[in-house]
Design a protein around this nucleic acid. Sequence first.
DNA 1: CGGGATCCACCGCGATACTG
DNA 2: CAGTATCGCGGTGGATCCCG
Lengths: 102, 102
Amino acid sequence: MTKDCPIENTLKLIHGKWKSVIIYQLSQYQPCRFSELQKLIPECSKRMLALQLKELESDGLIDKQVYATVPPKTEYSLTADGQTLQPIIAAMDQWGRNSKKV
Amino acid sequence: MTKDCPIENTLKLIHGKWKSVIIYQLSQYQPCRFSELQKLIPECSKRMLALQLKELESDGLIDKQVYATVPPKTEYSLTADGQTLQPIIAAMDQWGRNSKKV
DNA sequence: CGGGATCCACCGCGATACTG
DNA sequence: CAGTATCGCGGTGGATCCCG
């Protein structure tokens, strides 16, 4: 590990093309169905959305509620751990807004 | 662009295996020579370090001072824009520390 | 509706060697 | 010392089809 750099720990969890975006959207529209996330992040393919959600879930950052109905229904939400990422996500959001000048 | 998600702007600039780590180290040991960065981030290959530095520079986040001496010497530092990323980097650092339990 | 399986293109990234 | 050039692989991610 790089000299005293806890950032790498964080990176391992939120590095991924869409993970931070997913967390961002969840933090606003929680709980959220799969299809709702698709609408919120249309540039992210269904496949990638499923993959990233699975990783986030197995990392304990999000929760998945499955309703055994027909048609099936799932709801995603942030876990307590996932919530703690808020400061990072909010900071990235804020920075993105201020640099709109780009 | 995803529905009102400035995060993507931010991501474009700091997404990359080592960019945030580089910024983190620079924020502490600025200004920093190429070889110093190598020592600080030994897991990052020379090639990647050069590439990421070049991208960060062309994105206006870091500054590169070249001294036309023999042997050559360069010094990297954060630009004002780069400094504004501090809140994000600090948040990631902080989160990584608290989740050491992993 | 909420995925999984498969196939494939690309490129991120490492290893190595060379240069001013 | 501070890079660049070239080669090559593995993983990321898109497209499409399938399935409970």
